[in-house]
Design a protein around this nucleic acid. Structure first.
Lengths: 247, 247
DNA sequence: CGCGGAATACTTGTATGCAAGTATCCACCC
DNA sequence: GGGTGGATACTTGCATACAAGTATTCCGCG
């Protein structure tokens, strides 16, 4: 396993030269909010999107330089990320992007599956309008797949499941699910190039909405459980194809 | 509603004079770990234990002075607390302990109930030894109640439910539950003086273990749901008795 | 007495400097 | 050549100083 060398590269146009007079930071802060939050979100998105790879070492100093800010907001962001389990900080040694811990993946699967099953029971019966809304998201997923827009597919997948939670009246639970499934999401990214699998996923979505629409709770539950377990089931294969990414 | 005036009082022996030569901090750090973590845990425990009241204003400066540290670790701790929804930070205005948001209480109830029901299905059948272990915890709860040790009762309650999760093989899910139910925990603290209610809770625990031991999943599920919904059901009464604590 | 405005005293956000510890690398010795 | 020791270059943790903004308070005025 070759350590990817310390080159963080968070933002697409990173390393925008040494010219970042800190005033632009203040400007950004005025309009957009706290720089600390921005750094947090950037890092979060970079990790979830595998632009920062599992196990990759991070450096507060270098990160601060690349983003054109001081170490302080970077440190706060990293502290929050560490709390969420996305980075591992070893005092006086270094910080690394956390590897994908299979234990947490399994935990996320259990939580996601349990909560989604519990939610769908409060979502049925589904109104015709709501069902149509879900169908439309699935249709857009299909188009994204055809266009090769895997990123778009991913976002729509999130949107679909969030929508189901919202319809059940437990939208808040989706926030919790999202927080716990970061490791699982990274695993999903790894299997993303598999177009055949994506097609299957879309078919499963259709099947779930079918069951919800017809009010068949038992079938919906069975299909949701199968759906939630699909990616975690590939752990063996993925661990073989991506050594060093897992723990 | 009278704002409790800015006197944080986190540690029991707070305000230990202006004599805290910062070296003691380093000493503490050497043995105990990062001061940032200590501050985080102290604040966390203070909020959960209602020593810091809902809505109470906090001041980074004052907090740092009382704890004998600088603002930096306090800020990191507060950032993490804000992420967990325990404090509300308004830039350039102030920080307050978050009020008990009933929406989050309801969300926590849903999550706790759903996950515990899902877990118990993987916990049965319960071995005799495991059942005895749970019984022993309940017995200690009874003793704590008799001794008037409400704090001890609280800890044992946590221990019992954690144990059930552990027996189900989903101990990791307990961590998530604990993170989401902070608001709910504060509500439980408010009803803590009600000895009759506590006795009922203990009886419910007995009933749940009974059902688990006999392998009666349906009954166990029904009892767990009733148990999880007990405190949230008191929201109206509590909101009346403690105005200003809720939102 | 009521109202307006400016100075003031707070707040959090950011940048920077220093301290302490660890891993690495290179020279030196056996 | 192999092993050992020390200097060095990193790392993160903490403290402090400064910046920017907001709420308050108090004084002056009508």
């Amino acid at each position: 396993m070759t350590p990817p060398a310390r080159s963080n590269e968070v933002s697409g146009s990173a390393a925008d030269g040494p010219r970042t007079p800190a005033l632009s930071v203040i400007e950004r802060a005025r309009r957009g909010g706290r720089t600390s939050d921005k750094v947090f979100e950037q890092l979060m998105e970079a990790i979830r999107g595998l632009r920062l790879l599992p196990g990759q070492p991070l450096s507060e100093t270098e990160l601060a330089r690349e983003l054109g800010v001081s170490r302080t907001p970077v440190r706060e962001a990293i502290a929050r990320l560490a709390d969420a389990g996305l980075v591992d900080v070893v005092p006086q040694v270094g910080t690394t992007v956390s590897v994908i811990r299979l234990a947490e993946v399994e935990e996320a699967r259990f939580i996601r599956e349990s909560l989604e099953v519990a939610a769908l029971k409060d979502a049925v019966p589904l109104s015709a309008a709501d069902a149509a809304g879900l169908r439309e998201v699935i249709e857009r997923q299909r188009k994204a797949l055809d266009a090769g827009d895997l990123e778009g597919f991913f976002g729509l997948d999130e949107a679909l499941h969030e929508r189901i939670f919202t319809l059940s009246g437990h939208r808040g639970a989706w926030t919790t699910v999202q927080r716990t499934k970061v490791h699982l999401d990274r695993m999903r990214r790894l299997v993303l190039p598999d177009r055949a699998l994506i097609a299957e996923v879309i078919a499963e979505h259709d099947g779930i909405v079918d069951a919800l629409e017809s009010g068949d709770v038992a079938t919906a539950e069975r299909r949701v459980r199968a759906h939630a377990g699909r990616v975690p089931h590939l752990k063996g294969e993925l661990q073989r194809d991506f050594p060093g990414y897992f723990a």
